[in-house]
Amino acid sequence: MEDKNFIYNLIELEFTGGLNAQQKEELDAWIEMTPGNLSEFNEVIKLLAFSDRLVSMKKIDAEKDLLLVKKKLNPVLKFNTWLLNFQRVAAILVLPLLIYTGLTISNRSHNNKISTAIKSSETSFGVRSQIILSDGTKVWMNSGTKLTYPEEFNGNYREVKLVGEAYFQVESDKEHPFFVDLNGFKVKATGTRFNISNYPGDNVISTYLEHGKVSLFAYAKGKQQEPVQLKENDLIVLNKEKMKYNIQNNADSKKYLAWIEGKLVFKNDNTNDVAMRLGRWFNAEIIFDEKLTKKEYVFTATFTHESLEDALRLLSYSTPISYKILSGSQLNDSSFSKRKVIITKK
């Protein structure tokens, strides 16, 4: 014991860095005596390091620094009291997952919070992406789309703003209806799956309802018009200028939802439609020759991984067209302009 004391004392000194030359020699001699001594030395050092680490970690005030981080994240907002948060976390660690999930669902409340920041998400042309909103609603965004939404939904309803095309899977919550603002028009949904196309260049808005309930509201001169209720598999195409709409029952879901799976589907579509959608898909400007647009040609095709060139070649096999691709030129800001495609009759 006497000897152990002496050695352990030396190891402690070695650990704190207070070993003098003579003591160092004595310690080294002991370590080299047997391999067992070396591993004992290592273990004691590590043990000391462990206890040191515990002390250093205890000194750090995570609660205080969490506030600092929140300030960095959002200088304006006040965040929830942490007592509440702590209780929720404590619950998750103690109770089984299932019980916890049940609890949060029944406690869900959007009313008693301060308003949160507005965020937006954009996809450039030729790119598709998916985001999940704070209420769990999933949104797939097609190319050239902008979605504006609050970081956290609160108040009596949920609302997002859409320019472009998106497919929504709205998290069901009857007490907080979900609205999609389409600049003058609104789509209201509760727990549904639907697709909306609202590109600025189009004079129509089209909404396809896959499942659930959706109604479309129009606001003319600031006044709300009679809403239009959709049934499942209905496609409503609304002309923004003429304020007229057309409902197609039992519309083909494949045609309107295929883009989510990365497919571009044409089914008896006219040249106008093909030009618009092909253009958006490949980020190109598609121009049909007058000879084609005058006559009512329709196209049917499905594209998945094809490049623009491949797609056009396939189209030219099945229809009497030929095409020419003009590559984009470099602009002042060193980006490239869109490629142009001229489609003519064969």
């Binding site: 205890k58 999940i132 704070s134 956290e152």
Partner: peptide, 28 residues
């Protein structure tokens, strides 16, 4: 992973948990 999913949905309490749980150790 469940809490992480919650955090991805914008739930702050999940972020708070990760912070309080890992911050002292990460600093050291």
């Amino acid at each position: 992973l469940f809490l992480y999913d919650e955090m991805k949905r914008g739930k702050e309490y999940a972020f708070d948990f990760f912070f309080k749980y890992y911050y002292p150790g990460l600093c050291v």
